[in-house]
């Protein structure tokens, strides 16, 4: 790993200020995505600005019809949170199956979203629930946030501070884990909420995406068998030795049905 300067700012403003002054700097959440990438030499920032512990990024609360989760909350904290379990149990369950126990003890919501691994779990929740990503300077709708392979709408010096999840009527996430990495080979989050029915797929493509045909079918009738007629195309999907595009397309259907069934 190439060396860098480490910064531990006292507050959000100082963190943003450091990022602005150093164009090669990166924000560091729990490090469970960024540190492995740096160890492999795929990223070599000049500075790391630790943000996970900032007070502005901590906390979980229900605010009106939204669940607000601080970007610095670890996956374990989200999974164990009574508020999350009550408001959006599917989100707690999703967080409880990210990576493994040790990763969940360090990895954070904000870090996961900023890294935007195409096989990460959280992006499916953010997109399917129609959440709003709140940063130090603005609010970004989920539909505008994800921009494909490791690309988001975030500026280089922008820090995710929290995510506002509209509390859905029903939601569930079904994940088919990659046998080796345990990332999602295919993960499907379905939700029926204020913004209608939304279906988001992670792991299968170059980035998280919505499945419009399934949304239409479930919008008509919320039931697993409503998806029976929806054909998922393999074109454009990922392929590796553990899952061809065709198999992933098939799994999108299976996971979507299971998620709908689980959501009740």
């Amino acid at each position: 790993m190439q060396d860098f300067s480490f910064h531990k700012p006292q507050n959000l403003a100082a963190a943003v200020d450091t990022l602005k002054k150093r164009p090669e700097a990166k924000a560091l959440g729990g490090g469970q995505s960024l540190i492995p990438v740096m160890k492999l030499g795929l990223a070599a920032p000049s500075d790391l600005v630790s943000v996970a512990g900032l007070a502005e990024l901590r906390g979980i609360k229900v605010d009106g019809k939204e669940l607000v989760v601080g970007a610095g909350m670890t996956h374990a904290e989200v999974a164990d949170s009574a508020e999350v379990k009550k408001a959006i149990p599917a989100l707690a369950a999703l967080a409880g199956h990210i990576g493994d126990a040790q990763v969940r003890n360090r990895g954070t919501l904000g870090g996961s979203l900023a890294h935007d691994d195409p096989a990460a779990d959280y992006p499916a929740a953010v997109l399917a629930l129609g959440a709003t990503v709140v940063t130090d300077r603005r609010k970004i709708a989920a539909d505008d946030f994800f921009r494909g392979l490791y690309q988001t709408a975030l500026g280089a010096d922008e820090i995710v501070t929290s995510v506002r999840f509209p509390i859905p009527e029903k939601a569930a996430y079904a994940k088919f884990a990659h046998p080796a990495s345990k990332f999602a080979l295919v993960g499907v989050m379905v939700a029926k909420g204020p913004a209608g029915v939304r279906v988001a797929v992670t792991g299968a493509g170059p980035g998280v995406f919505r499945q419009a045909d399934m949304e239409r079918a479930l919008g008509g009738r919320w039931a697993a068998d409503a998806l029976a007629g929806v054909a998922v195309k393999a074109e454009g999907l990922n392929a590796d030795p553990y899952g061809s595009a065709e198999y992933r397309a098939h799994l999108i259907g299976v996971m979507a049905r299971r998620a709908v069934a689980a959501a009740g």
Partner: peptide, 29 residues
């Protein structure tokens, strides 16, 4: 390993298990 998979490096930080190969020493300050 070098991809945070094997867990041989697991230690406790403030009582919780973490992979010490995927945490900076400065973060343990």
């Amino acid at each position: 390993c070098d991809t945070s998979q094997c867990g041989a490096c697991t230690v406790h930080v403030d009582g919780r298990s973490v992979k010490s190969c995927t945490m900076l020493a400065v973060e343990a300050d």
